[in-house]
Amino acid sequence: MTNLQNNDQPRVLCVGAILWDVIGRTERHMRVGSDVPGRILRIPGGVAMNIAMTFTRFSLTPVLLGAIGRDDGGEELMRAAGSMGMVTDHLYRSDDLPTDVYMAIEGGNGLIAAIADAHSLEAAGAKILRPMEDGTLGSAGTPYNGTVALDGNLTLALLEEISHSPLFSKADLRIAPASPGKAERLLPLMNHPGATFYVNLEEAGLLLKRDFDNASDAALALTDRGAARAMVSDGGRPAGFAADGEVISQAPPEVMVTRVTGAGDTFMAAHIAAELRGEGAEAALTTALKAAANYVSGNSPQ
């Protein structure tokens, strides 16, 4: 279902948060009030951007749809995206809205705390989707029929609009929450006929208002609820993928975890890329788990 560029590299739309990640990392275990030495990084981030960066490593061409300010941070982010081979022509650029930022603290015991400031993306609203309706990437009469990676940083109102919009009616829609706190925003998309949900075990529980013992049960429950397909990850425990009433499960490789921010986005993007290459369900899940393991172990690019 993927559109092709002149060079025949598959194009995929990445819709959502494109921002700067400011991440403090330390090998030490932390608690509330900890003050420890470590490293502070500033790197391109946001769910849509993280997915796009992984796509480029799989020879896919990401087309970014989101909001980036015309401030210094925005100009730098545009240059960074362009240098990685992403299509930035269709981004909504605002003179009034600053470029969004995500800040996180990671310790040896995992993610300690994070704050996502995606206010500019939320304020831009449906303006980020104009290229999908003005004929640039599609229209209501001829909707985009390729793969769309959509993240839950969009407002609930916009996600509800997307759920029944003709602009997305033909899309191979791949959906991820931005965080457990935003998982319930995705409920309106549950019955989209082309939707694949990518969530972790906690997010699956929040969506369905129940607890699950394992990822396979959660994935099946999501498809029973209406999702066409569902992928559920569970950290170092087996992930589950459900479609057409069947479920497969695989355990991720055991690695030393050195970072966590962006791991789920890497997992999702690698799975999409594998499927677009024609890999079957088992092989695609293996590819995704390996990519995520390489990422959290620090053996792939930031």
Rank of each mutant, 00 (worst) to 15 (best):
L4W: 06
L4A: 13
Q9G: 00
G16H: 10
G16R: 12
A17P: 00
I18F: 14
I18T: 05
W20C: 10
D21M: 12
V22N: 11
I23Y: 01
R25K: 14
R28Y: 05
H29I: 01
M30S: 12
S34C: 12
D35H: 12
D35R: 15
V36W: 02
V36E: 15
P37G: 13
P37A: 15
P37I: 11
G38I: 05
R39A: 14
I40D: 00
L41A: 13
R42E: 04
P44A: 15
G46R: 09
V47M: 08
V47W: 00
A48R: 11
M49D: 03
A52M: 07
A80H: 09
A81P: 00
G82Q: 14
S83A: 15
M84L: 15
G85I: 04
G85L: 08
D89V: 01
D89S: 15
L91N: 05
S94N: 09
S94Y: 08
S94F: 11
S94K: 12
D95K: 10
L97S: 06
L97R: 08
M103R: 14
G107L: 11
N109A: 10
N109Q: 07
L111K: 04
A113F: 05
A114T: 03
A116H: 07
A118F: 05
S120Q: 05
A124I: 01
A126M: 00
K127Y: 00
K127W: 00
L129Q: 02
L129T: 01
E133D: 02
D134L: 06
G135Q: 03
L137G: 04
G138V: 01
T142I: 00
P143M: 12
G146N: 07
A149N: 10
G152E: 02
G152S: 09
G152L: 07
G152R: 11
L154Q: 09
A157Y: 00
A157H: 09
A157V: 08
L159F: 06
S163K: 11
H164Y: 07
P166W: 09
L167Y: 02
L167F: 01
A171L: 07
L173I: 06
A178C: 10
A178N: 04
P180Q: 09
M190T: 02
G194Q: 09
G194L: 13
Y198Q: 03
N200E: 03
L201C: 07
E202H: 11
A204I: 04
G205C: 13
L208I: 07
N214C: 14
N214H: 14
A219V: 06
T223P: 03
D224T: 13
R225A: 15
V232P: 03
S233V: 01
D234F: 04
G236F: 01
G236S: 15
A242H: 04
G245E: 05
M256Q: 14
R259K: 14
T261R: 04
A263H: 03
G264K: 10
D265W: 06
M268H: 10
A273F: 04
A274S: 10
E275W: 02
L276D: 01
R277G: 03
E279R: 10
G280L: 06
A281N: 11
A281P: 03
E282N: 12
A283R: 14
K290L: 12
A291M: 04
A293F: 02
A293R: 04
N294L: 09
Y295L: 06
Y295F: 15
Y295S: 03
G298H: 11
Q302N: 08
